[in-house]
Computed example of a mutant assay.
Amino acid sequence: MAWYSGATKRELQPESDSQPAIRPTQLIFHSIAAPWTNQRMYEYWRDSTNLDSHFGCQYDGGLMQFIGTETRADANASANRRADGTGAVSCESASNLEHTDPWTDAQIASLIRLGVWLHERHGLPLRICRTWDDPGYGYHRMFPEWSLGGTACPGDARVKQFREVLFPGIVAAIEGGGIPTSHEENDMPSAIDLWSYRNEAMSDRDVYQVVMDTDATVQQLADAVAALAAEVKQLRAGGAK
């Protein structure tokens, strides 16, 4: 298996050892529809789902690798591993809850570096995939075979960036144009700082988890109110007879 030195290694087990080998021929970019850190992505793959991805990219551009690129990861449906043993490398990235925001400059720079490494390490051709099994680079919603029943991931803003900035940046970097760097940091808290904030004196949940739990509770209450309203309506109808 192959591990990218530009990413923090956080090996996902037992998937990393138990899933079959692939010969990587594609890199598919995703948005995870959550403003998560890479550590939070790792915990999600480990604890909450049987899906997984090779890489995660948080808002500040930090990369984490969960599975070696010559092992299957389950984020791309039919492209995970094809009958001939080829498969896609997947990279999730932090986004807003509707995955409609653009990649940050730092994310773009990191994803370009990752794309360059995959070309150099695995020989991915410098082209956008023409079909679902064509070697090259793409984004999750590009072909229906890459998802189960279709997906809106990533949103329009990131699709535009992929075609106008990200993929051209990979090509330019390989051909000697250099890899862009992110803007200098400032003192303002980033989205990742805000969503990851946790007041341990009050709760062990971060802001994102509190919001999601609150949304689930509100939905449960709404369902309960709707059920009570239906019962009242039935009682009134019975009393009118």
Rank of each mutant, 00 (worst) to 15 (best):
R127T: 09
S203T: 14
E184F: 06
P35T: 12
R40M: 09
M64A: 14
C57Y: 07
I67Y: 03
Q234M: 04
Q13E: 12
V159G: 04
P125I: 06
A7D: 01
I32H: 12
T49I: 11
D47V: 05
V116F: 07
S31H: 13
R72W: 03
A224F: 09
N199R: 13
C57P: 10
G62V: 11
P135I: 01
F29K: 02
L126K: 05
I179N: 03
Q39F: 14
Y139H: 12
R236C: 01
V171Q: 05
G150A: 10
R81C: 04
L228K: 14
M64V: 02
R141E: 06
N186E: 12
S53F: 06
A83I: 07
S95N: 04
G138A: 11
D187V: 07
N76Q: 05
M41Q: 14
Y42V: 00
G62M: 11
S196H: 10
A224I: 13
P20R: 01
T37W: 08
K160E: 01
L126P: 03
W3N: 00
V210M: 12
N50R: 14
Q26I: 00
I170Y: 06
Y208C: 11
G176Y: 02
M202P: 00
A21H: 02
F66M: 01
A77W: 06
P102C: 11
R81N: 07
E175M: 09
Q234T: 05
A21M: 07
L235R: 15
T100D: 13
T214G: 12
G62D: 09
Y208M: 10
Y137P: 02
T37Y: 09
W117V: 08
T217R: 14
H122K: 08
G150K: 12
I174K: 04
R205A: 15
P168C: 11
V159D: 04
M142T: 00
I28G: 04
W103G: 02
R130D: 15
A2H: 15
S147I: 09
A240V: 12
D213G: 01
E175Q: 15
G6C: 09
E231S: 11
A2F: 11
H54K: 09
Y208N: 09
H54V: 08
A34G: 12
A201E: 08
D156G: 10
Q161V: 03
S110G: 14
H183C: 15
D133V: 05
T181H: 03
A88W: 10
P189D: 02
M188L: 15
Y42F: 14
V232P: 06
R40L: 05
R46A: 06
S90V: 11
G176W: 00
T8F: 12
P189G: 02
E164R: 15
G138H: 03
K9M: 04
T100C: 08
Q219D: 01
V89F: 05
R113W: 01
P102H: 00
L148D: 14
G115N: 08
G150D: 06
K9T: 01
S18V: 14
Y137L: 08
Q26T: 02
F66P: 00
V89Q: 06
F143H: 03
D60P: 04
T86W: 05
P102S: 09
Y4T: 00
R121E: 15
E164Q: 13
P20V: 08
T86R: 07
Q13N: 11
A226I: 08
H122M: 11
G56A: 13
Q26A: 07
S18M: 07
A106S: 11
G169E: 04
A94R: 09
R158A: 01
S78Y: 05
